[in-house]
């Protein structure tokens, strides 16, 4: 758990972060969102003490971070930045092994861990381990960046616009990867982005920041349904909210399930249980159909979702 209590950060006379308080529960993904210069990155960088606090205090699992050795603190926090920050003179394997090496793990354990992590991030160790960062695509490099942050199995993950420099398709893929990995490893994550859609997709709770203050701290659904101010309302897109809410809800929650999963007919098209209602609606509009078959992860047909149900449930 990370607690920020009345945290302030000043650079000279300007106030970058103004008396914010925020509690991030263990295992949740807290996304700090806001336009550039709103203090979100500054807040993140105070958590691992890359920036000093001007006032207030930050507690990690109840312990005040200013009493801890900064290097020790950071070794237990994975850190992912925009543009990866991979060391160009180190191979992928060595980059991933950075923190375990700093912690002086035995060689064999490091090697095993590197293999494990590259596999987790969908990179074949046999192909990529000995490459240098310049030989990777942007998406691959950022996967390595995430693997490096997870290497020593830290409790906390700090991500500073990690996918900001990637193209839309790669970004989308990495967001899905991150959701998948987060389900597996359950890290307490602070994630900074200026992209509200990214925030809605990834967050357990979102903290909307503006001019160094937290305007609203709530679940994605509540941020959409009950924006605390005009600023938040315009950030989430006033007119667009209905569809955005639908993109938060799974098809699996609204479908009519068969008593027993069936084998799909060949060529039958539909949606996955984990897909969003927004996607299901889009497919229906495109195919001009009132209902769609729903498949589970194994490809078995588990039920149907109908247009009526979706409209009934509403936004």
């Amino acid at each position: 758990m990370i607690e920020l209590k009345n945290v302030t950060c000043r650079f000279g006379t300007s106030v970058a972060v103004d008396r914010i308080s925020l509690t991030i529960e263990t295992g949740e993904v807290c996304v700090l969102v806001g336009s550039s210069g709103c203090g979100k990155s500054t807040t993140l960088r105070m958590v691992n003490r890359l920036l000093p606090l001007s006032a207030g205090e930050i507690l990690v699992d109840g312990e005040n971070i200013t009493t801890m050795n900064p290097e020790q603190l950071r070794l237990n926090m994975g850190y992912v930045i925009q543009g990866t920050g991979l060391f160009p003179h180190w191979t992928v394997a060595r980059n991933v092994a950075m923190v375990p090496e700093l912690l002086k793990w035995p060689r064999q354990r490091i090697d095993e861990r590197v293999q494990e992590l590259l596999t987790l991030l969908g990179l074949d160790p046999a192909i990529h381990a000995e490459k240098y960062p310049q030989q990777l695509s942007g998406g691959q490099a950022q996967r390595v960046g995430v693997a490096r942050a997870l290497a020593a199995d830290p409790n906390i993950l700090l991500m500073d616009e990690p996918f900001g420099a990637l193209d839309a398709i790669t970004r989308e893929n990495l967001q899905l990867e991150m959701l998948r990995i987060q389900r597996q490893v359950r890290k307490t994550t602070v994630f900074v982005t200026h992209d509200i859609d990214e925030a809605l997709k990834l967050a357990t709770r979102i903290a909307v920041m503006d001019q160094g203050r937290i305007i609203q701290h709530d679940t994605p659904e509540n941020i959409l349904r009950r924006p605390a101010s005009d600023f938040v309302e315009s950030l989430v897109g006033k007119q667009d909210r209905g569809l955005k809410l639908m993109s938060l809800r799974r098809v699996g929650d609204l479908m009519q399930r068969y008593p027993q999963a069936a084998i799909p007919e060949p060529g039958e098209e539909g949606v996955q249980e984990d897909d969003s209602l927004r996607l299901a609606l889009s497919v229906m509009l495109w195919q001009d159909s009132g209902e769609l078959p729903v498949f589970n992860g194994d490809g078995a047909k588990t039920g149907v979702v109908t247009r009526e149900r979706i409209f009934q449930a509403g936004a």
Binding site: N48, L50, E71, Q72, L73, R74, L75, M77, Y79, I81, G83, T84, G85, L86, F87, P88, M98, V99, L102, R148, A149, L158
Partner: peptide
């Protein structure tokens, strides 16, 4: 500086 930042953030002295 981004590399130094990454290194520092990962816990290098």
């Amino acid at each position: 500086e981004s590399l130094a930042d990454a290194g520092r953030g990962m816990g290098m002295n």
